[in-house]
Amino acid sequence: MSINWFPGHMHKARKEIAEVMKDIDVVIEVLDARLPVSSENPMVSSLRKGTPVIKLLNKCDLADPERSQQWLEYFNSLPDTTAMLIDYQQKKLISRIPELCKQQVPARANAGRPVRAMIMGIPNVGKSTMINALLGKRIAKVGNEPAVTKGQKRFTLKNGMALSDTPGILWPKIEDRDSGYRLAASGAIKDTAIEYEDIAIYAAGFLRSDYPELLCQRYKLKELPETAEEVLESIGRKRAGLRPGGVVDLHKASEILLNELRSGLLGNISFETVDEWLAKWEAQRLEAERLEQERLEEERLAAEQQTDKRSRR
């Protein structure tokens, strides 16, 4: 599935971020711990251009602890990158973030100058909630749906840090099929921009594959259905009721599954693993090399043909 969802304020935000990035010392990127790469906007890396980044793997209380630890180790192995597992209730951990920002630019911090940080993240990863936690009061608008923050804002913290907020921005087109579905299942993309039952079937298939015990336990399934469609039908029969004629209400079943998945009622779940993405990136690298070799070979053959033409004249 390729999702194309890029509201006008997001396009404007990208231009504004590019303009002010030269004056930013540290980027704070808020990710969803349940889908760290799918919720990592590739535009952030290109916009920050080597500026140190602190990646906050938020909503870790909803994520699979074992998979979260693997992601933490992976991100901390990257250059100019510091990662933390976090959720907005961890006040002591959140209070360490300003000091962590100062450690990224010690010369500026030691000179007594405010460290200029920009907080970034795609919609609905908890960015505004994290700002309120950093400030110790509710200033940034918070909502349980994506695209609440519409414009850039700046806040000054008591501990010598200047914090810039940005709207949650997705990239223009989400090409990776699994990432698109995961973002939709997690609530990062407005429900009006997706096919609800399509996303629910994907989520049901994922849960059947990766977390069958949690799935059966939550919906009291005596045995695991053979397909994702049958999972959704089973949920519908038990929880959504039937339409006239004994037809399962799949839309209502989809709402139940996605709402309970997003809220954590099914248990601690992570949509992706480090090994999965490393394998995917390696496959992409090999494919890029193959295409480059084909291009070079085409250029070589074209050059030989030109040489042959000249020699026959």
Rank of each mutant, 00 (worst) to 15 (best):
K141D: 01
K141W: 07
K141Q: 14
K141S: 08
V142M: 04
V142L: 07
V142R: 02
V142H: 01
E145D: 11
P146V: 03
P146M: 05
P146N: 07
A147H: 12
A147M: 08
T149P: 05
T149K: 04
G151S: 12
Q152T: 03
K153D: 13
K153H: 12
R154S: 10
R154A: 14
F155T: 00
K158Y: 02
K158D: 15
K158V: 09
N159K: 06
G160F: 04
G160W: 06
A162R: 00
A162F: 05
L163T: 03
T166P: 06
T166Y: 06
P167G: 13
P167W: 13
L170V: 11
L170A: 09
W171L: 11
W171R: 13
P172H: 13
P172V: 08
K173R: 15
I174A: 05
E175A: 14
D178M: 12
G180F: 12
G180S: 12
Y181A: 08
Y181L: 09
R182K: 15
L183T: 02
L183A: 10
L183Y: 07
L183Q: 11
A185Y: 06
S186F: 11
A188S: 15
A188E: 06
I189V: 15
K190L: 09
K190N: 13
K190V: 13
D191P: 05
D191K: 15
A193V: 05
A193L: 09
A193G: 09
I194M: 14
E195Q: 15
Y196D: 03
Y196I: 14
E197M: 10
E197H: 11
D198H: 14
I199A: 04
I199R: 06
A200E: 02
I201K: 09
Y202C: 07
Y202V: 08
A203P: 07
A203F: 02
A203S: 04
A204G: 05
A204E: 08
A204I: 02
G205M: 03
G205V: 09
L207C: 07
L207S: 02
L207Y: 06
R208N: 06
S209F: 07
S209Q: 13
D210K: 13
D210N: 13
Y211T: 13
Y211R: 12
Y211C: 05
L214C: 09
L214R: 14
C216N: 09
R218S: 03
R218L: 11
Y219M: 07
L221F: 06
K222E: 14
E223V: 05
E223L: 11
E223W: 08
E223D: 06
L224Y: 04
T227V: 01
A228L: 04
A228T: 00
A228S: 03
A228V: 04
E230R: 10
E230F: 01
V231H: 07
L232T: 06
